[in-house]
Design a protein around this nucleic acid. Structure first.
Lengths: 307, 307
DNA sequence: TGGGCCCATAAGCTGGAGTTATGAGCATGA
DNA sequence: TCATGCTCATAACTCCAGCTTATGGGCCCA
């Protein structure tokens, strides 16, 4: 994950979250003093913090004047990058908060790993802005675990990404997830001129999650007609480990598009086109058989329409 | 940007970047001590940091044993959220570093605001991992500014998103950018059952950037055949300001998909389908007329193939 | 049983980020 | 013209978070 050439930890080369937050506040308010008040600190503290941020980056971010402060051209760019960090931190916080309140929460959610990692934090941020009071607790596991929690009344609402709906549950499709064939940029497949054929994919040993995972279920089903999945090259227990292996050039894999955003954007991985096979699965909200859930569960459900 | 109900600043409710980095290192190495060494701190420091992170979140993240440390189930989730924060911080750092080295850098890049904000940091991370030594400097502005810098030999490679290629430059299409019609979830358009017609869009006052911006050029051209763009509701100078206005319900707007990731995912904004009009523009790399650039510029160019 | 690896705890140091207090620059309005 | 109110900067002081070193206990293996 650390690029080569890195020496000091990232945290020493980048302003901390508080400083980024402060920069956003300055952009919003057009004044150091008001930004400081917004964050509950004093004006000199804000002033010195912005100054030390500018020293660290070697760029002037804020143009001070007796009538307020505006961002410089560079400041605008830096502020936008900072905003993305702060948004990621907000997602972190929303997720972590849901993880904490184990017992006493009003809305208990159970979700598959992929959904809990990549989608739920965003939904929780949105939920909090629409229904500020709602306390959420979260547990993660595969489809069977989610079903069990719903049926034993340990969860009010679940999210799964498997092929079918577990018995005893009602469901609604809330989106779709495509599976991408990916390889390192150095892999021969990355230079192919023509799409991969299903039979080729099926015949090639891949880096995969263990058999229970949703991704693997879909892949098995899709390739059954084309000779069935070859014996895996390696079996790993987490999506992150799979990605790391693929990036390092160990071999190709098939992964959810949700897990691939950063890697594809930074071209650490490349997507290999495939033709003639549908690698797609439904994302579903699930609940105990019966009427649509009411109260907070309904609020959350209404935020999760197809994207 | 701050959700309602927030009181303390985000930075007090979330572990700092160093702690998140440490958590990732623990996940990688399977041991607090080795993670500590990796980050250049001592084992007790790492131990206490992880402990205080667990106290802050109210969740056990790491399972210690005399033979090493593994993440708990919750730890895996938290680590993945932390990874996204750290990746955003890496993008921040890559961008900021490019911004700093004004004069002496070997590769000088000029880019449009949108590309500089959303795409360049990712490319720079990838570039650094493939060609570690490359120093990059960055300046941002609209197409005319980019062209000027290239022609006056103040930049080696440029990126623009306008409609045409400025005179005197050669170019290559490196991707596409769709423009989305967006509105707040509370806006009437968000509940429409049928796609918007071009004439409706043209007739509606929108929240827009000022006339010079690339987005507005494309919009003008696309709607010329449908009666031309109505007088804007408000004109603002930054994309962020436009988004904030739309979120607050002031009216609809048309924005690049690149700028909308977070807002659409969190459903602070919703996309309004439109039929019969092509709101799409090319993203282009540009350079002084003549042969393809060589050296570091070529390295960067080769990272930016169509996504 | 000694030596390797793990982790935890304790005591002490230090720097960074906060505070209060103060002053200077620029508008506005009486 | 002078007071008022906003802006930001500087200086001196306080304090605590996070680091260090030193130490000890558990587990496994040769």
């Amino acid at each position: 994950m650390n690029g080569p050439g890195d020496t000091a930890p990232l945290a020493h080369r980048v302003p901390d979250l508080g400083a980024m937050e402060l920069l956003l506040a300055v952009a919003r308010h057009g004044s150091l003093g008001r930004a400081a008040r917004d964050l509950g600190i004093t004006q000199p503290a804000a002033s010195s913090r912005v100054r030390s941020m500018e020293r660290l980056l070697g760029v002037a971010l804020v143009e001070r004047s007796p009538r307020g402060s505006r961002l410089t051209a560079e400041g605008v760019l830096v502020t936008d990058w900072a905003r993305r960090v702060v948004e990621a931190a907000e997602a972190f916080e929303a997720g972590a908060q849901a993880l904490r309140g184990r017992r006493d929460s009003r809305l208990r959610v159970a979700a598959s790993m992929t959904i809990a990692e990549y989608l739920l934090p965003g939904w929780l941020i949105a939920l909090r802005s629409e229904r500020p009071g709602t306390a959420v607790s979260l547990s993660a596991g595969n489809s069977a675990v989610v079903a069990e929690r719903l049926l034993s009344d340990e969860a009010d609402l679940g999210f799964v990404e498997g092929l079918g709906v577990p018995a005893g549950l009602d469901s609604a499709v809330i989106g779709h997830d495509r599976l991408f064939v990916v390889a390192a940029p150095s892999h021969p497949w990355a230079r192919r001129r023509h799409p991969l054929l299903p039979a080729e994919l099926a015949a090639t040993p891949l880096i995969l999650r263990e058999p229970g995972s949703g991704t693997r279920q879909v892949l098995d089903a899709a390739l059954a007609a084309h000779g069935g999945l070859a014996e895996p090259l390696i079996e790993l227990s987490s999506t992150t480990a799979v990605k790391a292996s693929v990036v390092s050039g160990a071999g190709p894999s098939v992964l959810s598009e949700l897990a691939l955003g950063e890697e594809l954007a930074a071209r650490r991985l490349v997507q290999i086109p495939v033709e003639g096979v549908r690698l797609r699965r439904d994302l579903r909200a699930v609940w105990r058989q019966g009427p649509l859930p009411a109260g907070p569960a309904r609020d959350l459900l209404s935020l999760t329409r197809p994207t």
